[in-house]
């Protein structure tokens, strides 16, 4: 399988560990169901990044599933968390949103879906560790502007729509500052109950 995905690795790293480009995400160890949903979304143009939309256009779904499983099974170490230049209050705002949310603005804690250790849950919820701040901001922005959509109900769109620019900067910085957990594997399906329904998690 490694030879079949050599078209992907200059951008995503040999084992899907990511590369020095801050907008190119890590793939390794994310739930296979999540990765597969993303590949389908790129293939059908629901998620837009033209170089990937083009590569996947004529690949069969079962083959995309295999690619997803391949990268889900890789376990390269998480990168060391980069030094951050954001201020202490911003970091605290990020921590609050990730761990407690903001009930007044109906923002659930990120951890209520992405898991208490932020390692995600099978089959459709990705972990949030090992992602760089630029990538996280870009993705939250893409949901707000409608260039990234997930299967309906698109719960992540509902969350992103309630965040301000400042919230986005804060959560992106806080997430990137978290040390790697000893066990980075996503939780079992049904390990905890989501605050509201997500289409990505339905099957």
């Amino acid at each position: 399988m490694a030879a079949r995905v050599e078209a992907c690795t200059p951008c995503h790293g040999k084992d899907g560990e990511g590369t020095s480009d801050v907008y190119f995400p890590r793939l390794a160890g994310k739930p296979a169901g999540y990765l597969y949903n993303q590949l389908l979304a790129f293939k059908n143009g629901r998620r837009k990044y033209p170089p990937m939309n083009y590569l996947l256009e004529y690949l069969a779904d079962p083959y995309l599933q295999e690619m997803a499983e391949h990268f889900a099974e890789q376990r390269p170490p998480l990168p060391a968390s980069p030094a951050s230049d954001v201020s202490q209050p911003v970091m605290q705002q990020g921590q609050a949103l990730v761990t407690r949310g903001d009930p007044a603005r109906q923002i659930p804690a990120c951890g209520s879906c992405h898991g208490p250790n932020l390692t995600g849950m099978e089959p459709g919820i990705p972990g949030l560790l090992g992602l760089r701040p630029n990538y996280v901001s870009a993705q939250l922005g893409a949901w707000r502007y409608g260039t990234r959509t997930a299967k309906a109900p698109d719960c992540m769109q509902q969350v992103a729509a309630r965040l301000t620019e400042a919230d986005v900067t804060a959560v992106a910085a806080y997430l990137a500052s978290r040390p790697a957990p000893i066990n980075n594997a996503p939780g079992q399906k049904g390990a905890y109950v989501l605050p509201f329904a997500c289409g990505s998690q339905s099957d």
């Binding site: 050599e6 004529y58 079962p62 083959y63």
Partner: peptide, 16 residues
């Protein structure tokens, strides 16, 4: 990537 076809369902690809 060449297309997935019945005769070649899992094609090899070339990076950009």
């Amino acid at each position: 990537y060449p297309p997935s076809t019945e005769g070649n369902p899992r094609p090899y690809g070339m990076p950009p």
